[in-house]
Design a binder for these strands. Structure first.
Lengths: 128, 128
DNA sequence: ACAATATTACGAAACTATTCGTAGAATGTT
DNA sequence: AACATTCTACGAATAGTTTCGTAATATTGT
């Protein structure tokens, strides 16, 4: 069972999903680059990554002094877990309502909308 | 600004969105009806609803001894807030990815899929 | 009127999430 | 070798979430 990542953990996972693997320092710098307002201390990032390794969210290679971390959960699985939780807790299980909100909240371009429609058409075809 | 409800608060909001308004006892019984395994104490529910009233998530009518509560935030607004947060924290801003996951996680019926497609078509038309 | 019951208010315990300081070990510099 | 820097490990402070016990007050039943 995948432990549900917290907000801070998600930010670290984002970095590692993008880069594949990284040291604590690299992750810390990536986090501070995007959010320049209040910077995150090095040991804060370290602590999180240690906790996440304990939880099984990350694995690490300790053969070098600077441990090298990588995500041990797939982005897709985490996304799926969050979606199903939110479906129950916020949308009463209605995927349609979730889709409506997703389309309303972020204004997708026509190209994206058509991409989604193509996906729907395929889904409908497969269902028949 | 809407304070983001916690998990426990969301469950209470669900009940009130459905019923319109209710007493603490009614909400507590509704919560315990759906989740029969480990029941929630009456004072637990009471405490939450008091906190939520303080935060501005609920309003209450105190003219009777049993106070009558109702939601002071709209379901739609809360859904929208959760979607935009999740878009950033889990989907890197890609609404399309969120839609894909939503369709993959819950298996919608063909009727629902067609409903979504109709919605898309309208959206596309309006965008042009 | 008295006892039983229901309701609110208050406070606090237990747990989780977030943040960082300090110590000690390993590595690099002069 | 001595010093400075970098890294991990550990512990702890703070804040937020969840849960309930107890006390005080109001209502109901006998």
């Amino acid at each position: 069972m995948i432990p549900k990542p917290t907000d801070a953990e998600l930010e670290i996972l984002q970095v590692l999903w993008k880069s594949g693997s990284a040291t604590v320092r690299e992750v810390n710098e990536a986090l501070n680059k995007q959010q320049g307002d209040d910077s995150i201390g090095y040991t804060t990032t370290l602590k999180f990554m240690q906790i996440m390794a304990d939880k099984g969210l990350l694995t690490r290679d300790e053969s070098q002094r600077s441990h090298i971390y990588s995500a041990s959960v797939r982005e897709n699985d985490v996304q799926s877990a969050f979606v199903s939780k939110m479906l129950n807790s916020v949308f009463r299980g209605s995927a349609m309502q979730l889709v409506v909100q997703a389309l309303g909240t972020s204004k997708p371009t026509n190209a994206e909308l058509k991409q989604i429609r193509a996906l729907l058409d395929e889904e409908i075809k497969n269902n028949q």
